[in-house]
């Protein structure tokens, strides 16, 4: 037994409402007379230009070019970073070399002084006087 069987058997489906005579015949004419006038834009078929056709390809190419440029810039940036590191290293190495040279020169001077003092049997005081003479 369907759920609405009781109602169908008791009340049925008959429409108990009525309308004034000729209502539906008149309704359409009355409504169309009241219906506001509207202007619709004539939708002219749009002309497909060459640009329309190639636009997707151009956009795609531009996108790839952009990505390639981005990679190139990133690579340059990384390379310049490496070079800077190398330069810094070089400068650091050069600095230590200079320091080594200076130390070597100092050592040579001391060695030479010792040699002169030993060979000429000079004491410290004589050496001092000798140096003063050179400076003057």
């Amino acid at each position: 037994m369907a759920k609405e069987d009781y109602l169908l058997s008791k009340c049925g489906r008959e429409n108990p409402f009525k309308v004034p005579e000729g209502y539906f015949d008149q309704f359409t004419d009355d409504l169309m007379a009241k219906l506001p006038e509207r202007t619709f834009d004539e939708e002219a078929p749009r002309k497909v230009t060459l640009w329309d056709k190639v636009k997707p390809v151009v956009y795609l190419a531009a996108m790839f070019a952009g990505i390639a440029a981005m990679f190139a810039v990133a690579e340059d940036f990384m390379q310049s970073g490496d070079e800077a590191d190398a330069k810094t290293e070089l400068v650091a190495t050069g600095g230590s070399a200079a320091t080594t040279d200076e130390m070597a020169a100092d050592d040579a001077a001391i060695d030479y002084c010792n040699y002169v003092m030993n060979e000429n049997e000079m004491d410290d005081y004589s050496m001092y006087l000798y140096m003063e003479e050179i400076v003057e």
């Binding site: 109602l7 008791k10 009340c11 049925g12 008959e14 108990p16 409402f17 009525k18 309308v19």
Partner: peptide, 13 residues
């Protein structure tokens, strides 16, 4: 005046 249903139909409404 435009409702012409009987008692049962009125009850349903």
């Amino acid at each position: 005046q435009y409702f012409t249903g009987d008692e049962v139909q009125l009850l349903l409404q």
